[in-house]
Design a protein around this nucleic acid. Sequence first.
RNA 1: GGCGGCAUAGCCAAGCGGUAAGGCGACGGAUUGCAAAUCCGUUAUUCCCCGGUUCGAUCCCGGGUGCCGCCUCCA
Length: 351
Amino acid sequence: MPRATQYVPQMGEIIQGLLEKGVAYQRTATRSTSRSRASRATGKLSGKVLDELEAGARVADEARRRTPRDFALWKSDPHHIQQWDAPWGRGFPGWHIECSAMSRTYLGDTFDIHTGGENNIFPHHECEIAQSEGFTGKRFVNVWLHAAHLNLEGEKMAKSEGNVLYPKDLVAEGVAPVAIRWYLQSVHYRQPMNFTREALKAASSGVERLLNFHDSLKHRADKGPEGVAAVKVVESLDEARVRYVAALDEDLNVAEANAVLFDLMRALNAMDLTRGDAAAVLGFLTDVDQVLGILPIGEESLEAEVERKIQEREAARRRRDFKASDRIRDELLAKGIVLMDSPDGVRWRRK
RNA sequence: GGCGGCAUAGCCAAGCGGUAAGGCGACGGAUUGCAAAUCCGUUAUUCCCCGGUUCGAUCCCGGGUGCCGCCUCCA
């Protein structure tokens, strides 16, 4: 994680370059203040009409800049905690310059994707464009992904109003982290998301199904009927892959991509998969999980005692002593272990 | 006041001119020793409202209403 304060020299390089190009200027007229400003390139993202912006009343220090659209690259305020020496006076970096400096350091003059909250479109991101493009003469960013905000139960999520919720609190309540992840990614990034318990619960059920599907595939790949991957299955996977990628290519249409997964799951669940089929599907899911990151990492294991109980129950079932087998099942359920009988033998998972 | 975004079933959510994906929930079936899991079926005739364009609009245009963001020194 780069820290802004460690890139002051790189910021200085940009500021110097902008001054030399005449894109920025220094102000020394107002008291001891010395400022450099670059004119904003703008309206590029926000679509704001600059002349109208000038009419806006909230420009307090108009005297210091030539036009309201200008912004400070370097500021001077003896009372500020952070101070650096610079050719244009002792002071500290302006608002936006650190982003240009840091991104340039690591990603170069031009990079592909810049994300951020929609509240940063103006002025922050437009200032970044102005600085970076003014300095390099090249296109700064190819694609901007501006995420809409998160609301909580219909209210704006705001610390100042106490309307906040932290993932760690949800986890403490017993919500599975993967459910939170799935829920958050299920809404398109440009769509404002209203976080509700009800929707979280729904998302939780959905991802649970997906995880259960994955689990059953592993079981199948191991203990299911012998056989190689059927053409029908392979074709389904190929089709799903194409649709999945196409959905994400379309401005990250995650909802569409998720629908592909559910469609596929339903189709495959209706088939009697062999070990080869299951292995092929698992391969597909592993690929998809590079996007989702929801599949469990590593194998889960059972305590020896639970393992023994399961064997015990199997024995009871074989002699059709359902009373005993059900008792063991309930016992394990109370411990959070769910047992599922299948033609390939019993399967378990943690609740 | 200005600029931008959004408004789809009980809930969440795709769709971008050809007559409404998917998920959750609910209800009814199938399967199961009983469950769990799974499958099948049902669940939107004003897609916020009013006009317009079009053979045809949830999708385009105009006008409303509501919600969100921004309109500068916090990045």
